[in-house]
Structure formats: C-alpha cells, structure tokens
Design a protein around this nucleic acid. Sequence first.
DNA 1: ATCGTTCATTTGAACGTTCATAATGTGTCC
DNA 2: GGACACATTATGAACGTTCAAATGAACGAT
Lengths: 346, 346
Amino acid sequence: MLNMPHPARATIVDVARAAGVSRQTVSNAINSPERVSPDTLSRVLQVVEELNYRPSSAARTLRHQRAGAVGTELNAVTGTPSEVALPFLTALTLAAPGHACHMVPFASREAFPMLSGYQDMVRRRLVDAFVLTDTHPADPRPDWLEQAGIPYASFGRIYDDSSRVWWADVDGSAGTSAAVAHLAETGFRTVGFLGWPAGSAVGDDRRLGWLAGVEQHGLALGPEAAAPQSLSQAISAAERLLDGLAVGDAVVCASDVLALGVQQAALARGWRPGRDIGITGFDGSATAQLHDISTLVQPLDEIAEHLLTVVHDQLAGAPAPTQGALFLPTLTVGASTVTTSMKGTP
Amino acid sequence: MLNMPHPARATIVDVARAAGVSRQTVSNAINSPERVSPDTLSRVLQVVEELNYRPSSAARTLRHQRAGAVGTELNAVTGTPSEVALPFLTALTLAAPGHACHMVPFASREAFPMLSGYQDMVRRRLVDAFVLTDTHPADPRPDWLEQAGIPYASFGRIYDDSSRVWWADVDGSAGTSAAVAHLAETGFRTVGFLGWPAGSAVGDDRRLGWLAGVEQHGLALGPEAAAPQSLSQAISAAERLLDGLAVGDAVVCASDVLALGVQQAALARGWRPGRDIGITGFDGSATAQLHDISTLVQPLDEIAEHLLTVVHDQLAGAPAPTQGALFLPTLTVGASTVTTSMKGTP
DNA sequence: ATCGTTCATTTGAACGTTCATAATGTGTCC
DNA sequence: GGACACATTATGAACGTTCAAATGAACGAT
C-alpha cells in the first residue's frame, strides 16, 4: 500500500536552517516576537512565508498538554433539532480561532448523552473543554463535568444550582418586552401571548416579558394560550387565541414555530399578518426568516464569544465569574408586524 | 496564574509499569492484540481499564504524521444556509469514529472560500482531508485541492470535469420519479412540476425524473413553473401553476420550500393538501417535517459514510474509483399526499 | 582590567506514541 | 546437540514543538 506522500511540509528546523538561526529563535519569532531582535525577526518571518511554515498543532498539543480544542455535542436523536443549532455552531466555529482553538463536534445515537463520551475525548486529549447546549433542569452534565474536573460552558442557564455560573443565555423576558414595545410603536393596542405549556423555564421567562411590556406601555392585556413546539398544535392553540382577539390586535409568541402557527391560523380566517394582526416570534430561526415573521434574533456571536472566554478562563485558572451572563436579543422586523401600507394612527 | 491541573491522565508508561511490561507491549495490546500472548493481553487490558488509559491523539498524530481529522466548511455568509447542512454534519460526525477520525468544522465570513484557509489547516496538521459541500459548477475548490495534493470528497457532483470521481450525491431524477410513482399509487392522475429556473444542474435533474415518472406511469403531464428558493416567489409561481390544475391533481417540487409554496397557495384557495391536491417536496428538510409535506429524504448517513471512505482511500493511496456515487432518496409520506380519509378509486 | 547586568540567541530535555530492530525464550528438525 | 524458525517482549529513535537553563556579547560602573 504505497502511502500517498503528503506535500512536503516544512518544520521548524527547516525554517531555522534556512534563516541561519536556531529552532528556539524561530519559535520565539512566532510566539514572542518581542524577544527577537528586529532584523532577525523579519528575516525569520520572511523564511516562514517562503516555506509556508505553520507550527504543527499536534506537536504543540503534546508539548503544552493542551489540545486547543473545545468539544460540543450535536443532537443526533431523531426529532426536531434546535433551529439555532447550526447558526450557533457556526458562531462558535467563527469565534474559536480568536481563542487559539477549534471546535470538535461529536454525536451519538443514544437518547441521553453519557459522561464516558465526554471523558474519553478529554483523555485522548482531543479537547480541553466543552460547550453544552440544550441544557435543561436536572441536566446531569454540569455535575459530571465539574466532578471530573473538566471545564465547560453552557449555552442556556443551569437551573439546578444558582452557584453555577458557567453559562450564557438570552434574556427572554427583555426580548418579549421589546417585542411588545415594537408592537406598541407600530400601533397595536391589545397584545396576547402564545407560549409553551407552563413549567418550561425558558417559556415562563418569555411570558413575563410580555406581561411587563404590556403594563409598561399601557396596552390592553390580551388572552394567552399554550402549545408545544409543533406546528399543528400551535395552529389549534392559535385558533382559540384568535377567537378572543379582534382585527388590529397582536400576539407575542415564545418561539418562531408558535408564531408561524398564529400566522397560519390568521391567514386561514383571512386576517392579513402585519395589517390585521401583529405577530412576533422568538429565536431568529430560518423558519421566521422564511415566513417573513418579526422575530427576536439571538445574539449568537456574542454568546459564542462569551462561552469560549469562559472556558478559556477556566483553563487558565482564572477566578470564576460571580454569575451567568444574559444577552439581549434584537428584534428583526418582518411582514408580520409591519406591511408596506403602514398602519397610521386611527 | 495558577494553572488548573488537568485530572491526572495515565500515559502508556504508567500502564506498562503497572502491568509489568514494556511500552511497546501496551501499544501492541491496543493496536495489534494478535501479537500479544493471551494472558499478557488480558492483564494489560485490565490495567488499561483500571487506569482509564486512552492513547493521546496528539502523540499519535505526531508519530503517524496524520491528524486523523477531516475538515468541513460551514457556510457563514449571511443568507439561507442549506436546510440539510446540520443533519449532514451530524451524519459525518456520527460516521467519523468508524473511520478512526473526527470532524473539524471551520468557517469564515468571506463570501467565497479561499484556498489558503484550507491549506493552513493541512499545514498545521489539524486535518488530513476535507469534505466539501455546496459544490457548484465552476467551483474552484476541487482544482485547488487536487493541485495542492490535498485529499477531499464532495457532497454533490463535481460538474467541470467528469474525470473527477471523488463525490457522492443524491439521485434527484430517481427521487422525483419515485415521487410520481407514489402519487400515481395514491390516485393522482395529472402531475405538474415546480422547479428552479432552468440551468441549475440539480434542478434540471429533478425535473427529468418528473417527466420520466409521468410517462412511465401513464399519467397526464401537468404544467410546470419555476421559482427561486424563496417562499414568496414560490407562492407566486405556485398560484400560476394551480391555475392550470384542477382539484385532484398533484405537483412535484424540486425542493421543500417550493413545495411549501404550493401548499400555502393551495390553502389560500381552499384546496386541502393531500385531498384536493397532492404535493411532494425534496430534501427531507425540517421545513417539510414542520409542515407535514411528503418529501424525498436524502440518505445522509450513507453519503457521509461513503465520503469518509473516499477520503480514507485517498490517504491510503488506494486506486481512485471509476466514478462518483449516487444514492437514492427515500420518500417520507406526509399529509400533503395522503390524508386520513384515503382517496378511493373514483 | 574586573565584575555584574542585560539582551539575543542557543542547547538539552521532555511531552506520548509507534516504527524498526534487537533481544529473549520455545520448540522443531535433522 | 546444535542450527534454525518462530513467537513474544523489550529497547532506541524519531515525530515537531516549547520550556528551562546555558552561552555569548555588549556595555557601564567600579
């Protein structure tokens, strides 16, 4: 089996030879340029360019005892994957080079993740830390990882224990509150709410923002309803909700799929979204974009940046922050709250 | 800065000492068990378990001159990311351990990918090869990589040059043809088509399957229309299309979004999908699932498996295959072609 | 002239693994 | 009994990098 020869890759010794210096000087030129005299620096860097040298990450990992990589689990169980999973992974991947690391996804077909999967990756020195997603109340992973001494950061609050601070999340309440503000500005006067069945921490939070927003802007509190994250059930719930609303009212929703349900139910009874009824969703998902629904876009870039900082700090032994971090979503306006024929003050 | 001590990780020498053998014997016990006598083997493996030893991938990479990793680019440019991007990445990630490797995603905000990004990852020994996605006619990447001697495999045909064989794709024509067969079985007699504007290789392929299917099953050829991958434009095109169809007819679509457009247009004129009009989409995307549209699900697991085999073979210097590989999509039936009240023969 | 100080650079060692090869023991055949 | 084949285990070296410590040179201050 004649092994395909990799295109000749220059090593640090090749560069050293070509520049007439030692290994270490090349290493310094790259990692601590201030330690190298200006003329040797430029000479070395030029050779680096000529030979297209890049330090081997494997050798670095071996030497530093640090993989320079962060693992993250992809949900592979059949069912509805989170609508923001890919954009979030993309945000992490984009932010990683700024933290001198890269992402390593992993997945299993087991319904529930197992610690051993996480542990193995660390033991094999494939990753130093993890970014968790879809963290839910009673999620065992924060406990596991903490006891195993494995750094992590979670996208989504960690509910069990308020002493856990290694997370970042979207400020749902502020988001729906901002949605109500937008509806008020646009001219809607009564605002209802379509959420998830009570008990979901994320959903309850978003509901509170609706209540606060309606009060703060002196609007009329419309009815509320709940449905799970399924379009058909969202439509059913929306139909009941619309029975209690009139043309000119609005509905704030806890997710984009729920908002889509309201949109479909409205269309079914001939109400034009954005004109006859205002609808806002939550998450900034592709679904909202596709259906032109106003939605609260999660600041995934900021969150990814923050989470990588958090794991980096843990690896560096920096003191833990005092609390998790909340980030504000931003409203993206679609046709579901404003149409070309602007609503005037009646 | 007190560095957080990694939980003590056992090395191969620790295992060797504890088992009373040499490094190499431990290595053999793990990599070539047949070279080790049965009793030493079991003794060593037991110690491996006790100490929870896992070989350092960094040391292996350094020694083998092979990263054991495959890179893949995430499309980070704003716009509509492919609906199957995440499921496909998940499929790759699931298949990777079977090929003794892991995936490394990367991304940039540049509109067009640059070779240098790919080259750097190889030079840093972060990855050995790449899986390309969204390959389009005149895509420069296959050329680049081939000239740089970097192994790759593409999800999606490589159009420029039929001598390129390192790809796998979905058999679009067979897919739409199967969709027509399903519609025929279900009782539809006239079948139209909603595709993308002519010139898209993927779209043209899927259109041919519709034509062939209609002929093969002796159905009536309905009208056809085209729209880009945007819901509003799909709806407009679908409205024109439906004008030329009657209740009881069906439409095969080149994508799930287009199918959604037909569904929405049908609902708008009071036609019940699955009963009054049959609709099939393509891709098995979350959109189709959400809206309960019959769709042709891409066999992503098979494709991922195949692509990893392809890059592995290249790395091993195996002879190139004679052609790319096509995989059949499978039809998932939703409410858009069959409803609870089964269509009988009239 | 001698001694320290500082700066730029070099050298030896180590990170953990596996390849190539050597050493050891175990029979087998004449 | 000795030469040979074979199975099993052990040793040295190398992959490419960076840390810690050593060397050498230039410069003042004494």
